[in-house]
Simulated assay, not measured.
Amino acid sequence: MRSIYIVDDDDTVRSELRSLLCVYTNTVLRSFSSGDEFLRELDSLSPALVLLDMNMPGASGTDVLAALRDRPDLLAIVVTGQGDMRVAVQAMKAGAIDFLEKPCEPQALLQTIDLAFETLEQTEQTIARTGQAQRRLACLTARERNVLDALIEGKSNKVIGYELDISPRTVEVHRANMMDKLEVRSLSEALRIAFLAGLIAT
């Protein structure tokens, strides 16, 4: 089930958007009359696209975008006043994935939403893979993690053994246990999990 959240203080805009977005089946539509109302619900919201007005009393669109930095599963499409490109640029810099000018041309809005849903699906898959990788790494003992960290740096079993004051044979045992817990068959697969979990800087 997909979701779209409309955050706009204009009752007419919210109503028009809901009517237009009814073309999406199996999609939950929720409206918020202010940024403050949306932020109060933020922690309980499921992954979704957010159609976000920038100029609202109380918490502005900019305030909402700042709060969404910790929610990569909520992707914002900013809806801004016609000709206000400065606000649009600021919104993109703050994390919005796209912007549209009011009044929105229906077809352009639907095309933007379709592309955003594709991006959201990819984002959710990445988040799921990252979480899985982190859970696997959490199963490693401290010594197995030491071995993995050293392998990430490209060190051989002999060098790892010297630095950890253990024999190369013991390094091999820790390495085998580490790969078993990570459910991988090769070092490249182990490194891929480390990358997904954020151990390897891009």
Rank of each mutant, 00 (worst) to 15 (best):
M92Y: 00
A133Y: 06
L137D: 05
I127E: 12
E101A: 09
A150D: 13
N177G: 14
L100V: 06
S186A: 07
I166S: 06
L100C: 04
A108E: 15
E153P: 05
R136I: 00
Q122A: 14
G81L: 04
E121M: 11
T141K: 12
I152P: 06
D84I: 01
L74W: 02
I97P: 00
Q122L: 15
S156V: 10
D98S: 09
Q125P: 00
V147Y: 03
P106N: 12
A76Y: 00
N177C: 13
L115P: 00
R136K: 15
L120R: 04
D165M: 10
D180R: 14
E118T: 12
E121N: 14
V173Q: 12
L110D: 04
L140A: 06
S167K: 10
D114V: 06
A91T: 02
E124F: 03
R145P: 00
C139D: 10
A133P: 08
G95E: 04
P103K: 09
R69F: 00
G131H: 13
K158M: 12
Q82K: 10
E189N: 05
K181F: 03
L120F: 05
V147S: 04
G131A: 09
Q125V: 12
K158S: 10
E118K: 14
G131M: 10
T130Q: 15
S156T: 15
S167V: 08
K155M: 14
E121Y: 10
C104T: 11
P72N: 06
S156R: 14
T170D: 12
L109M: 11
T119V: 14
L187E: 12
R169V: 14
G154Y: 07
P103T: 08
G95T: 03
M178H: 02
L164W: 06
L75C: 04
A128D: 13
R185W: 06
K93I: 10
A88K: 00
E101L: 06
I160F: 05
K155G: 06
D98I: 01
S188T: 12
T130D: 09
M92P: 00
D149Q: 11
S186H: 08
S186L: 00
R71P: 04
V159R: 15
D70L: 08
G131Y: 05
V159S: 14
L115D: 08
I127Q: 15
I77C: 01
A94V: 04
P106L: 13
E189K: 07
E153Y: 08
Q90G: 11
D165C: 11
A88H: 01
N146H: 13
Y162G: 05
A128H: 11
R185A: 10
R69C: 05
G131P: 07
A116I: 06
N157H: 14
Q132F: 09
M85D: 11
H174M: 09
T141V: 11
V171F: 05
D114K: 10
V184S: 03
L120W: 03
I97R: 01
V79C: 10
A94Y: 00
A150I: 03
T141P: 09
V147P: 03
M85I: 12
Y162N: 10
A133Q: 09
R169Q: 13
L74D: 02
Q134G: 02
T130V: 11
E172Q: 14
